[in-house]
Nucleic acid binder design. Structure first.
Lengths: 333, 333
DNA sequence: CTGAAAGCGCTAACAT
DNA sequence: ATGTTAGCGCTTTCAG
């Protein structure tokens, strides 16, 4: 009825409680005979070590705090799924924290630390320097996912967003587009800034100025408005780069269904992320892929790297390919 | 540098360690003077109680194990988001477990129990009776989300799937459809069975037999094939009910883009869930809403209900409305 | 290699 | 109302 403890197993096996502990501690020295005896008793009682009690001594809770803000951009569920599965392979599990906005990040981080997590992945929000110090002091590694901060001292994993922006510009130039527009994401984010900079820099090199620029804030409703604005005038863009797929999907509804333009003949569209939806025939969106698996793998590596909590912050950028689909025309020539 | 304990606070405040504990234990009796003194010292040191150490005594880890299998059906991220936010309000947090298939559910449940969780939400998979007994024995309440099992003794929260199926049938009948088809989800699930039964029963009452039935297994690729099968013959359905939105989205790509039919003129489509995507203009899908917030609220209520671990299993069904959009025609008359 | 003993940070009697 | 004491289940010295 009650919970089975190592004491119970010890009694049944006729050994000391510490012997039981050793059998379940990888790398401890126990004879095979002892191990067999203990395992037998443990199986009979259905014993499993209490991770929380163990954490009190070892300092390892095998819990990783994961903070996300919104899951309606399909990229984040995807990351969560991979992260969760990968962590599990190493015997860790993600404790989820939804942070609606940046304001209560201090409170959220405090809650995370209450659970004595072994690491933190911030997949959506930023963090105050004060909290950063707390984590450093507690020796808890923190990894920013899909964003980085110039000034603060955090490890970070992102795609190579600048280069991604460049690739999109090159595609538009090669296809002979003249009226090229950009729909920006949330301006506070590094992803937004880098993608735009790569895009605009490359256009400039080819002597092309942005025909239009709107802000969609990575948000569905705002992107609808931004798209309507963009096509309100007589002459409209013939190619648009959206800072992520989510906004491109939203815009496609407006462009095709509401305004009656044809993609890619009237206007070419490119997104960023390559979420599963992008490959669906109904969208068929050309986009820059964020290599989710590799990004997660790098994040975990950073998290588990022995001295990553104290080491100099590392920013890992993972290259992602441009995936050509039917929302863009073939390059000419 | 090191971690701050209640001992440190006690020393600084010049009180006993248990006094500190009491100040941070809601409902314990402490004088205001004592509370102030302790809080001051605690704030100065940045002290917060260690949840894991506390759990060792109280038996409450404030962790809820949440098991999901796939997150590509947008319904689950939505649930996760709401569940996470709601749990947080009560000082609980979800520990995520991705279970790829049912086979390793025993192992997954064992891992969950290692963390001494205060409850379990199974949002996607089933569970063996053996594990059920373990949870019962440990006094850990389990709630099935969006599925239920006749035989096993679990609490469950679902939408009223049977009634939802009825509503769709009534809509098709009222709109005068004659060749009505159904695309089934994964046959093992109660959601699939109930939705189909409500649908078919209502059609039968009106003297209508199913024109076609395919299986999409709640899966993208299989739904593409199922849809192509369905429209392979000369005469094709003029109305199709998909057991969830996810499959309807997949099918819409085939029906509109690949086969060139028009929705709803050539064929009406209805889904189930009302995920955010369903209201996007590009889909604009008529569907039965699963009231996510209310379903989550009920699940949490079941989880926290004092004696829910021992009580008779309760199955809560939440009614959801039919949301009319442009993938169906207006009822005639 | 094994057992005895100490103690991780905390709460909950038990005293006063 | 506060301090003292005894553990929660476990790992990890320390002896032998």
């Amino acid at each position: 009825m009650a919970i089975v403890t190592s004491q119970d197993v010890a009694k049944l096996a006729g050994v000391s409680q510490s012997a039981v502990s050793r059998v379940f501690t990888p790398g401890a020295s126990v004879s095979k005979k002892m191990a067999d005896k203990v395992r037998l008793a443990a199986d009979e009682l259905g014993y499993r070590p209490n991770i929380l009690a163990r954490s009190l001594i070892t300092g390892n809770s095998r819990i990783i705090g994961v903070v996300v803000s919104y899951l309606n951009n399909q990229f984040y569920p995807e990351i969560l799924e991979i992260l969760s599965a990968e962590l599990r392979k190493s015997g860790y599990h993600p404790l989820m924290f939804m942070a609606s906005d940046n304001d209560d990040m201090d409170e959220v981080m405090a809650e995370i630390l209450d659970y004595q997590v072994d690491g933190v992945v911030l997949a959506s929000v930023s963090m105050s320097s004060a909290l950063a110090d707390r984590c450093k002091a507690a020796g808890i590694p923190v990894v920013l996912f899909n964003r980085y901060l110039e000034k603060d001292n955090f490890h970070a994993v992102t795609a190579n967003n600048y280069q991604g922006g460049c690739k999109v510009a090159e595609l538009f130039i090669a296809a002979g587009h003249k009226r090229i527009a950009y729909v920006a994401g949330w301006e506070e984010t590094s992803t937004q800034r880098d993608r735009e900079k790569g895009f605009v820099d490359t256009l400039k090199k080819a002597g092309i100025e942005l025909f239009d620029r709107q802000v969609g804030n990575y948000n569905y409703e705002e992107t609808l408005l931004a798209t309507r604005n963009m096509f309100a005038n007589e002459t409209h863009p013939d190619a648009v780069f959206f800072a992520n797929d989510h906004m491109a999907f939203a815009a496609m509804g407006v462009i095709e269904k509401e305004l009656g333009f044809r993609v890619p003949d009237d206007v070419a569209m490119v997104g960023f992320d390559d979420v599963p939806l992008a490959s669906w025939p109904i969208f068929n969106l050309t986009t820059v892929r964020q290599p989710a698996k590799r990004m997660v793998a790098e994040a975990i590596r950073l998290l588990f790297d022995a001295n990553s909590a104290s080491a100099q912050p590392i920013h890992i950028e993972v290259d992602g390919p441009l995936i050509l689909r039917n929302s863009t025309k073939e390059p000419q020539g």
